[in-house]
Design a protein around this nucleic acid. Structure first.
Lengths: 113, 113
DNA sequence: CGTGAATATGTTGGCTGCCAATACATACAC
DNA sequence: GTGTATGTATTGGCAGCCAACATATTCACG
């Protein structure tokens, strides 16, 4: 699949992998790849600007965690983020329905098969 | 839905609405809108360059029809276009599976509901 | 100790591709 | 003759993702 096929749907992916709990950037990339069975490989140049944008929008909050291990910036969903995720899921459903019905139309009834 | 959500999937839409038979540009816009239940409203600035590109790629062939009515440029699928459409459908299926499994993951087995 | 790989965050430039706006021409109703 | 629908086409702009690059730490291995 084209690598940039995710265009326009990235926000939903990021919010979705953060739903179970906070993650840092590197783990977000791994989570998306794992959940998509290896298909979606996001790049740092893709997610870091996106994470910053989502934080600016108030959908995520971040905190540095330097204790013990390396420094990591952990992101977690805000309440607004959870609401936005619900909206993204609805939009995704409508989107796939629309494209899908054009790409694979249901044949009109009454046609002999 | 965002108007440009169709990005990256336009070719498949155009090939799909041309599958039953030849159409001209204006009718293609109407067909996509009709098949998507009014959701997808393509613009002329979107489809005409795309149709030209698909013709250059050998997936469509066009012919002017000036008899009686106004002049119209009718597009129809070539054999390569039909093969490409099959590929677009496969790609769409893989794409929705990948995004969908990130956005709405199936919960791990063994979890009490 | 050096070297390399894995982990981790981040920026910059560029390109793709869709849209809004615009232009123009014909047919038909009123 | 004027407005509306039909019909084709181009241009400029911009959002957004990616490739490439930059940097730093930790750990294994020799």
């Amino acid at each position: 699949m084209r690598a940039d096929a995710v265009r326009g749907h990235l926000d939903g992916l990021l919010l979705a992998v953060l739903e179970p709990g906070p993650l840092h950037g590197y783990a977000i990339i791994a989570a998306v790849q794992h959940r998509s069975d290896g298909v979606l490989e996001l790049r740092t140049g893709t997610i870091y600007p996106a994470l910053n944008r989502l934080e600016r929008l108030g959908l995520l909050s971040s905190s540095w965690q330097s204790t013990g291990e390396r420094r990591r910036r952990c992101y977690e969903l805000t309440d607004a983020g959870r609401r936005s995720l619900a909206g993204e899921r609805t939009a995704w459903s409508e989107f796939t329905t629309a494209i899908g019905s054009v790409l694979n139309p249901t044949p009109p009834p009454g046609v002999a098969t």
